[in-house]
Design a binder for these strands. Sequence first.
RNA 1: GCGCCCGUAGCUCAAUCGGAUAGAGCAACAGCCUUCUAAGCUGUAGGUUAGUGGUUCGAUUCCACUCGGGCGUACCA
Length: 550
Amino acid sequence: MDIGNYIENILSKAIESSGFSPVRIQFDIPKEEKFGDMSSNAALLIAKANRIQPRKVAEEIVNNIKSDPGIVNKIEIAGPGFINFFIADNFYKENLSGILKQKSSYGKSDINKDKTANLEWVSANPTGPLHAGHGRQIALGKAIANLLEWTGYKVTREYYYNDAGNQMNNLAKSVYARYMEIFKPDFPFPEDGYAGDYIKEIARKIFEEKGDSLVSISDMEFFKNYGEEFNFALIKNSLNRLGIHHDVFFNETSLYKNSDIDRVIEDYKNNGLAYESEGALWLRMNKDKNFQKDKVIVKSSGEPTYRLPDIAYHINKINRGFDLIVDIFGSDHRDTYREVLYGVESLGYDIDKIRVIIHQMVTFKMGDESFKMSKRSDKTYSLDDLIDDIGPDATQFFFVMRGANTHLDFDVELAKEQSEKNPVYYLQYAHARICGILRNADEHLPEYKNSDIDKINLELISTEDEIKLLKVLSKFPAEILSSSVSYEPHKIITFLNAVAEQFHRFYHNNRVVDTGNIELSKVRLLICLAVKYVLKNGFDIIGISAPEKM
RNA sequence: GCGCCCGUAGCUCAAUCGGAUAGAGCAACAGCCUUCUAAGCUGUAGGUUAGUGGUUCGAUUCCACUCGGGCGUACCA
């Protein structure tokens, strides 16, 4: 049973029988114990709407609440008119067997059962390896995809890329130049070419395979394809190291081949949404929606700008019938995605199911040095370098640890530290510690495994640390729902921190395996097991490993 | 200039569509290992939530302005 639903239910019934018009019930989990386990400001809201005294409203409501004393221990009115509910310890104790039964699915819900979601992220074009700045989006997307699955969505993980156009020509020219350099050291390198060392590596590989046979070639196609393949291998390898696999690699070119792009152009023209000027095709932007000026969708050269295929791509996703379409971009795309969505909407498509998550840029700190991964930055710090420096778990963890909308300062030195300073270890250590206890129990008290989880002697659970621990664990499913609807996986980490903190405290104050008190030991082992499930499930969602030893 | 985002402890960040005494970690200081992992626990200190006004029972949260930082403002993606 979900305690939140239960309280909400009895509260709204009481409001109704008190004769007040229904309000949207809001709950807080009070920071302080003396305010109970759940608190509602319903009386304050009603009082405001009806211009009466809040405390009187609260009294009226409380008098009409019919609750099960086995679940609700006490109801109090406090402060200006908060109604505070104190939940009986027994409720949390009984929850223990539920966790133990559900194991690796504790926390899952099916509210989005039979719904499909498409998550598109990373989507870097194969012009080079991923850099460390990509890491934020990559890690966020991984965790969000998991969160969506935990609430029942069937998730398609998608990567959108373009292997045609200027960028790729540029890649081809850059590779060609580096190849030619092998024979003529003064061969000119294109002014806006890709300067990274990986281009030299590609050229060297081509030289090893083909020798000088391509020196007089005029067709850049070979260099383009070779570079693309090489770069995609790099990208996929980096993603692999973080445990990320996309289901669909969507090639922008397919939108040209199947005439989707042409159809969009036709639609714009037919509806008077686009006009020609100076040889280009312009999309009329709505100034009322804070757009500053019209935007080019087809250049005078006849090539579309990036907006047009992006619009066609979103229409394609809508037509594929997903119930939810999620995009993740850095804040440098804030304006462009608005333009794209406007372009989609203006053709009459329903963009309500499209959800765009914007994350702010990351500043990396190494010692006294600070740098950003902007396109203009000449500083190169690849995602692989970052993973080499701090490991895949810390990489994933540090990027997901904070809300997407903060300007994150990433302290590489801190993340590198294999010590108590590193917040990822605080969590993982709790898990490893439990595994250690269980190993100890395997040796000295193996019979705990035969405990009947339907007949746990709840009387034996008596210490404050145990009750608090069970309380925290009971909130896990609600935490998942709340971070899922807001697409904020960092809330899971905040929650897991609370679990780990309470577990460490419990561990410190309560001996678990005690052969002198076998029944108590068994119960405490089951509590440890429940904590282990919650930690492991949380780790799975945010995408880090659950070490058994550290 | 204009648009969007951000500003919370010395540092990095939380704070559940406006809730009660703004919380963690790191850094600092003081304690705790003959007992399942001290990568841990306990305690102390640290704040005019950038600033000024406003809205109300109540504001870190909403509004206005000022200051500071980021990102955009391409017929680049």
